[in-house]
């Protein structure tokens, strides 16, 4: 059974630490070039390969990632 996932990022709450990026097995997230209001280069989705494993959310110190996963 395969899963397809995606995440919703609270970009204004993101502090751009990048710890989540280290946990992503699909390499589908990265810190972007755009800064949020606090000046942090926040997290962005860079590829459509998310499997909804929630590793990023589990690592996020600020709880700014919501994870969705659907069977395909």
């Amino acid at each position: 059974m395969a899963f397809k996932g995606t995440i919703v990022i609270d970009t204004e709450g993101c502090k751009g630490c990048g710890v989540c990026v280290t946990g992503c097995p699909q390499k589908c997230i990265a810190l972007g070039k755009k800064a949020n209001k606090k000046g942090y280069n926040h997290l962005e989705i860079i590829a459509d390969t998310c499997i909804g494993c929630a590793n990023c959310a589990i690592l996020c110190p600020d709880g700014v990632i919501e994870v969705y996963r659907a069977k395909v």
Binding site: K4, V8, G63, E66, V67, Y68, R69, A70
Partner: peptide
């Protein structure tokens, strides 16, 4: 299509 309440697997407590 994925972002639906029934597909939510992780959100802030």
């Amino acid at each position: 299509e994925i972002i639906k309440p029934e597909n939510l697997v992780y959100s802030k407590t």
